[in-house]
Computed example of a mutant assay.
Amino acid sequence: MDHLNGRTAVITGAASGIGAALAAELASHGMSVVVADIDADGAHHVAGELRARGLPAIGARVDVSDPESVQDLARRSYDEFGSVELLCNNAGVLLFGAIAESSLGDWRWLSSVNVEGMLNCLHAFLQRMRAQQGWRHVMNTASTHAFLPDPRHTALYSATKHAIVGLSLGLRAELAPEGIGVTVLCPGQVATRILDSQRNRSEAFGERASEPFGTGVVPMAIEPGQVARDAVEGVLRDAPIVFSLPEHGREEFRAQVEELWRLTGTALGDHVEA
């Protein structure tokens, strides 16, 4: 825990769900935290709850799809705490729909938050983090969907999560010589409000997509606090990938990954049996 105590973490998408749980978990280990979210009221509420427990935290509004907004977040984080040792690129959104029936606005919205949002944060924070000494780490939140051969009407979402995994593993190799670690967090079903992601969708991206599963909390899911604990444990051991999903979903996920490997083997001419 010496890596965390007395240091600073910035968490995007932290007004609720996994991000809020990460803020609480990291603060409990002695970190100062910047709770950042497009939902300013929610971010300030989470930060206020932490301060009420005597934990150093500030809330900040950020639109990760806007490079200038992210630059403002970086400036404020460094002005407030002097350094940032852990950057958690956790902001993410979800929608459902078949590829042929989804609009370009659907794709642009997903990618502007999930992929470009992560890149905006990396560009704003990494130069500053590289100028620091000592322990530093980046954690990017992807999803188990990045490993599924059958996205089930989440192909656009899954594509953004594939991108996060690829970018994160590449970044890990690039930053390793500088002593900066990179971990990609891949949660499964988590009891969050991600089904209601479009509550923050700008009109600039067109009409909202249909919401076939409603907008409530994800059912039959792992609690965000468990994901946060798994994530922090993975960061501390510098894991390349951390999976966090309910016990009842592990065998199904394993079977889906094995199906992907079967398809790979077949394509390579290995004639792997199903």
Rank of each mutant, 00 (worst) to 15 (best):
F213N: 12
H248N: 13
F253Q: 04
E25L: 01
L195D: 06
E80W: 09
A21S: 02
S111T: 14
R172L: 13
G105I: 05
A209C: 11
E85L: 03
G48K: 12
D63S: 08
G170W: 04
T160W: 02
N140Y: 02
I180S: 09
V235L: 15
W135G: 09
R108S: 14
R229P: 11
V272N: 07
E25W: 02
L195I: 06
L86N: 04
S83Q: 15
N90M: 03
G6H: 04
L95Y: 07
N5V: 08
P56H: 06
W109V: 04
R7Y: 03
H3A: 15
R172E: 10
L167H: 10
G105W: 03
L148E: 09
H145D: 12
G54T: 06
V70S: 00
R237S: 15
P67G: 14
A163L: 11
I164M: 03
G30T: 10
D39F: 00
S112Y: 02
G188W: 12
T215F: 05
V227H: 04
A204R: 15
S197Q: 01
D150T: 15
E259H: 11
G206A: 09
E80R: 15
A9M: 06
G188C: 12
Q127C: 04
G6A: 05
S111K: 05
R7C: 02
A173F: 02
L185N: 11
T160P: 01
L4Q: 05
I99N: 09
V70T: 08
G105Q: 05
L126A: 11
G179Y: 08
L50N: 10
H45W: 09
A146Q: 07
V242G: 12
S168Q: 03
R172G: 13
A98H: 09
R136A: 10
A204K: 14
V227P: 10
Q256L: 13
L4K: 06
Q71I: 14
I38N: 02
L171R: 07
V272T: 14
V257R: 05
N5P: 00
E251A: 14
N90T: 07
F243L: 15
Q132F: 07
S69D: 08
L175F: 08
T192P: 00
E68L: 15
F81K: 03
E259D: 11
S112G: 10
E203Y: 01
C88S: 13
G170A: 13
V165T: 13
A14I: 06
I99W: 14
L263N: 12
P212C: 13
R130A: 13
H29Y: 11
L263Q: 13
R262L: 05
E101H: 11
A57R: 09
S69L: 02
I180N: 11
V46T: 13
E68F: 12
D270P: 00
R51E: 11
H3S: 14
D41V: 15
L73Y: 03
G54W: 00
N89H: 02
A239Y: 00
E116K: 01
S65A: 15
P177T: 07
V242A: 10
P149A: 07
L126S: 03
S111M: 05
T8C: 13
I180W: 08
S111D: 13
S16Y: 00
V184Q: 08
V35F: 00
G13D: 00
L22E: 03
I164K: 06
R237N: 10
I18L: 04
V33H: 01
H153E: 15
I222K: 08
A43S: 02
Q198R: 01
